[in-house]
Computed example of a mutant assay.
Amino acid sequence: MQEHKNFWDKNAGRYDRFMRKDRAAYEEMYALIWPVVKAKTVLELATGTGLIAKSIVNAAARIEATDASVEMIAEAKRDNQSAKLYFSVQDMFRLPYADESFEVVIVSNALHIVPQPEKALAEIHRVLKDDGVLIAPTFTHAENSFFGNSKAFFLKLAGFPLYSKWTSEEYLRFLRQNGWAVRKSVVLKASFPLTYAECEKTEV
């Protein structure tokens, strides 16, 4: 895991520029997230530079936005204008929060790049309220075009960690098999197909 933390630390300064090409898909995603987080307490995991958190904070009651990368969190804090938004360095596999602490948990574009994503889902299950909502948009690389596959290949050469290569259907099945009922899903058009999923807790 340390080498992958180093990858994100090294690339924190250029992350926002890299994500600009998917701005339209992200705007669609913000529109989907906004009503779910309205007046709710929110935890975001793998926040990166805080793109999502900063775009939805006006809707939420409070957001704790976390990432494993020290440099990503430093970038995120740099232009944080909201008193309702708190950034910190945390490990998504061992969160410091009590059981059922949050009404919404967001983990965006992260489950495919961590080993044992089912363990991250179990920890999310613990800190989310029983009537809460998990928002888990993830790039589903297995549905790539030839151009998308080429980009994925070069990203991997550059050290980009990619542990799980799902189709949208496979990803939603993975969520269901790990304690989640998918109540809404949409595939957004981005550099790689982006499967937006809203989920509720079931028995694990």
Rank of each mutant, 00 (worst) to 15 (best):
M1G: 12
H4M: 05
N6T: 15
K10C: 01
A12W: 08
Y15V: 00
Y15Q: 04
Y15T: 01
D16I: 04
K21M: 09
D22F: 09
A24G: 02
A25G: 11
E27P: 05
A31E: 15
A31N: 14
L32T: 01
I33S: 09
I33P: 05
W34H: 02
V37E: 05
K38Y: 03
V42S: 08
V42W: 02
V42P: 04
L43D: 07
E44Y: 00
L45S: 02
G48H: 04
G48K: 08
G48L: 06
T49H: 13
L51E: 09
I52M: 14
A59D: 15
R62T: 09
R62S: 14
A65E: 07
T66E: 00
A68Y: 13
E71P: 03
M72S: 10
A74T: 10
E75N: 07
E75L: 11
K77Y: 00
D79F: 10
N80R: 03
Q81V: 09
S82F: 04
L85T: 03
S88E: 13
S88G: 13
Q90D: 10
Q90S: 11
F93S: 08
R94F: 06
L95K: 07
A98S: 15
A98Y: 09
V105M: 05
V105C: 02
V107Q: 00
N109M: 11
A110F: 04
H112R: 08
V114D: 05
V114H: 02
P117G: 02
E118N: 12
E118F: 06
K119D: 10
K119P: 01
E123S: 03
I124C: 06
H125G: 06
H125V: 03
R126M: 12
D130E: 06
P137F: 13
F139W: 10
T140Q: 09
A142Y: 01
E143W: 02
G148I: 04
N149Q: 14
L155I: 02
L157N: 01
G159Y: 09
P161Y: 10
S168D: 14
R173K: 13
F174R: 07
L175S: 06
R176T: 12
Q177E: 14
Q177D: 13
A181S: 09
V182Y: 04
R183V: 15
S185A: 08
S185E: 07
V186D: 11
L188M: 10
S191T: 15
F192D: 04
P193T: 12
P193D: 12
P193M: 12
T195H: 10
E198P: 01
E198M: 07
E203I: 13
V204T: 01
